[in-house]
Design a protein around this nucleic acid. Sequence first.
RNA 1: GGCCCGUUGGUCAAUCGGUUAAGACGCCUCCCUUUCACGGAGGAAUGAGGGGUUCGACUCCCCUACGGGCUACCA
Length: 509
Amino acid sequence: MADKQIRVRFAPSPTGGLHLGGVRTALFNYLFARKHGGKFVLRIEDTDQGRYVQGAEEYILNCLSWCGISPDEGPHKPSEFGPYRQSERKARYLSYAKKLVQMGYAYYAFDTPEELDLMREKFKSLTNPSPQYNVITRAQMKNSLTLTEDEVTKNIDNRVPYVIRIKIPAAQNIVLNDMIRGEVIFNSDEVDDKVLLKADGMPTYHLAVVVDDYEMEISHAFRGEEWLPSAPVHILLWEYLGWKTHMPQWAHFPLILKPDGKGKLSKRDGDRLGFPVYAMDWTDPKSGEITKGFKEMGFLPEAFINLLALLGWNDGSSQEIFEIAELAEKFSIERIHKGGAKFDFEKAKWFNGEWIKRSSTIDLLPLVKKVLETNEINSSDEKIVALIPLVKDRCQLLNDFYTQLAYFFQDPHEIDINAIKAKWDDSKTTFLKEWIEELKTMLEWTPLKLEDSFKQAIASKQLKAGELQLPLRIMLVGGKFGPPVFDIASLIGKDSTIRRIEHSLTLLN
RNA sequence: GGCCCGUUGGUCAAUCGGUUAAGACGCCUCCCUUUCACGGAGGAAUGAGGGGUUCGACUCCCCUACGGGCUACCA
């Protein structure tokens, strides 16, 4: 294994939006490949024609590309290991399935869905609510183990629909060596005769994953923990196909769980709790329904990757902010947790805030510009460049730049006038009216001059700066937030400053 | 129900037999700041329970409890 090329794969099925757990699996694969100088391949598991969704494959590629973890090989970048869509590899699965039947490791089964239901109903008991198709039950079903050879060939000739099932041996220990969990032992009596080849001629995941991992020379196979129970089927298949010595090293990643209750995180939880679950916006081609993604929610890909990497993995130090190259350097499968992690959106936002703070103005410029544009604010680059340093410490999501910047471009839509009213009186109105007159004659419109002017005027009226500076801010920006007030006044200009004060004054009457 | 995986503060988590059980998010207090953030200093908060093994267990073993996954001609 040491001298073998490291090859890993991410194998999503194109059924919809790309879940953050999927991105993390892709990321861990990518990091492992980078760390060991291997190849990261994308394989599309589109064997379920009923669940296939138009556009999902391209969308997945876009997500990975946005995250900066584009695969080295895949349908978009073929090499000698292709094709990379399982639907395009159909013929191979059939021939391997037949080979397994010939060798006695699999068999034809002609049971209809109704007959399967019937069987499950018949064998159902309190102690066994979901009977399997296994050593016991297969003897009573319609398959090439119970039928005569003639009957079987007749069925096939008559195009009676059939599936091919693996024939799980009785009373055998199947050992999985998992890089994260160590040795996991399964008893073959507990695993059922999984369908390998479906009636439509397509393989199930079980067959496809081992055929493809073998043919694509995958050295390490990583996937979510939900696959652990079917691992014995895959191990048996590697053995039966005579490829045991080529079997990849397995690792089953812990699941990403719902923040509140129980269970793995789903798209629904995001909708319910108000945070994204998909990497990017996903539009369902049938319903047209849009599901929000991290990208559109205002996440930086660097932050997204960073927070995902730390969900179930750490380098053993207390460092939390990593860029992708550093992750690739420090990553190791052995340091991945065994237990699932609840997703915490607050912490996710913190990561993003850290990355915004770390990003340069120039890197932020196009992103901020876009946020402003989607809110119908068009501005020169120069102005945005001047503004970004003023507010970026106040933004956790890119979209926060809109709230933090809008009042530089337009008068505030809403003014928290009640916050002013509470401690207002005529003397303050008078003061501002007089100060406006002074502003009108002001030649140098700089923060410093403005502050001087304001403070001197205040002093001469025997008022306190604190009592008027906050109201002034609210008049200019609409609320209690934003950079130093005289910076704002200076940047929005004389006319806007005076207009906004006057407007608030009329509201106060 | 069965099988499998897991279990350190509310959350993410360090520890790989000997520590006052790190750090981070969130929360609270204070400082900085006549706003909000950022930053700084503090604070509350953790080994599921019970048995072993050991001079010594968060760490190793067993049982229980709890959580999760799987149990499709879906992946």
